[in-house]
C-alpha cells in the first residue's frame, strides 16, 4: 500500500481528489498551506485513491499520512 505523507507542517488548503479516483504519478492531489504559501502535494505513484485521511482546514504535522493509494 502506498501512502502520501506531509513533507512539512501546515494546514490542508485543498483536497483535489476523491476516494476511488485514479491518479497518475506526479498528479497534484492535495494543496497544503504553510507559512503563507500554497504547496502542491503530488502523488509519487500511479494508482487509485483508497482513503483520504484529511479534510480541508485540518492541521497536519510533518510525516502525517494524507492519502493512501492502492
Amino acid at each position: 500500500m502506498n501512502k502520501i505523507q506531509a513533507e512539512m507542517a501546515g494546514t490542508i488548503f485543498q483536497v483535489l481528489v476523491s476516494e476511488g479516483e485514479k491518479v497518475e504519478e506526479g498528479q497534484v492531489v492535495i494543496v497544503l498551506e504553510s507559512m503563507k504559501m500554497e504547496i502542491p502535494v503530488e502523488s509519487n505513484v500511479s494508482g487509485e485513491i483508497e482513503t483520504i485521511h484529511v479534510a480541508e482546514g485540518d492541521f497536519v504535522n510533518e510525516g502525517d499520512v494524507l492519502v493512501t493509494l492502492r
Binding site: 512539512m8 507542517a9 504553510s34 507559512m35 504559501m37 510533518e62
Partner: peptide, 13 residues
C-alpha cells in the same frame, strides 16, 4: 527566511 534556499519552499521546525 525559514525556507529551502533552492525552491523557496517553507521549512518550519
Amino acid at each position: 527566511y525559514a525556507e529551502n534556499p533552492k525552491n523557496f519552499y517553507p521549512s518550519p521546525g
